[in-house]
């Protein structure tokens, strides 16, 4: 299994599309590692700097419809090679969400009030998140406070995370 504990990158916007996560001009790369410098290069978000803001982050928290647009799995790969294995959002585009689980990564849907709570109480702080896969809990903390948030994902999603992705599971079962 991948690492599901670390520092949080808050992206306060809805409808962040896959062209913003990894622009099409980099789709000519044929290794995942080559995508590393280009993650979120075209993100339209005032004040965001993709050369500095991503460093050392493991979790992204964002708003609605994250990963809409193209089917490119380069979007989860660009996150993965930067050490980001978890995205929390109100909801995701279908293909992006499936791509995350197919790579053994977490794309967790949370109700709007929980996402609002995280933005209101933790954005701008040095925030850490840990996913407890067995208890379905998100442990969130900053230097002076902490909270526990329940989450729910399907059995299939969880199995893919535990198996490290869809290839291994499919090869065994089909």
């Amino acid at each position: 299994m991948k690492n599901f504990k670390g520092k949080v990158l808050f992206l306060d916007r809805s409808d962040i599309n896959t062209d913003e996560i990894i622009p099409a001009k980099y789709l000519t790369e044929i290794t995942k590692e080559a995508l590393k410098p280009y993650l979120l290069e075209d993100l339209s978000l005032p004040g965001f700097d993709n050369t500095d803001d991503i460093k050392g982050k493991t979790v992204v928290i964002t708003r609605e419809n994250f990963g809409c647009g193209s089917s490119r799995e380069h979007a989860p790969w660009a996150l993965e090679v930067n050490g980001i294995n978890v995205v929390l959002a109100e909801n995701f585009a279908r293909i992006f969400r499936q791509n995350m689980y197919n790579c053994g990564m977490f794309a967790i849907d949370l109700p709007k009030e929980k996402i609002d709570f995280l933005f209101d109480n933790y954005s701008g702080e040095d925030t850490t998140i840990e996913i407890d896969l067995e208890k379905d809990l998100i442990l969130v903390s900053s230097p002076n406070k902490s909270d526990v948030i329940e989450f729910k994902v399907g059995e299939f999603d969880k199995t893919l995370v535990k198996e490290g992705g869809w290839i291994g599971y499919a090869d065994k079962n089909y």
Binding site: E73, I95, Q98, N99, I167
Partner: peptide, 27 residues
Amino acid sequence: SHTCTHGAFGAFAAGVGTTDLEVGILK
């Protein structure tokens, strides 16, 4: 992602990522 185009023929046609494609090719 624009694989949805082929639904014009009364098919279920879905765009997928590379891992789903890989399993599709193999299995």
